[in-house]
Amino acid sequence: MGGSSSAYDGPVTSSSEHRPEGRGAWAARLLGGGVEPDPRFTLANERTFLAWIRTALALLAGGIAVEAFTPAAFDPALRTFLAVTLLVLAMIMALAAGLRWLRVERAMRRRAPLPLPLLVPVLAAGGALIAGAVLVVVLVAPQGGG
């Protein structure tokens, strides 16, 4: 792909002197070549990233809450399992959200098809695992244990 070709009339190759706000060389390198997409698409991509980050934050909050607020409801091993699963899922989501934002941004700059959201099956599987675990515990656990 490479942005070194001068066939683009577009603003972005390797220099950023056209840019009033300027951009670090590392950021330009991360984004690769291509031309700036429609600003609305850039902002939409940013909002999508933020939606994924909020998903990660919700999982993070869930992980903390399960560990910190349910000492009477779950036995320690299960509590730790649920918290660790939620927190690992939160880490994966937050990391993948940033990477996906970058991949989408790069694809838009090259007018290429957008990448598939690999996060969706991961989130679905993780959510199903956690919900299943809680369901089993609720059904199996002796009533009135506390």
Binding site: P11, R19, E21, R23, G24, A27, L30, L31, E36, P39, T42, L43, N45, E46, F49, L50, I53, A56, L57, L60, A90, A94, L95, A97, G98, W101, L102, E105
Partner: peptide, 16 residues
Amino acid sequence: RTSADVAAVAGTSAAV
């Protein structure tokens, strides 16, 4: 024309 806010996205992702 706008430039993607790489620093904000990368920083937020890393922080979370």
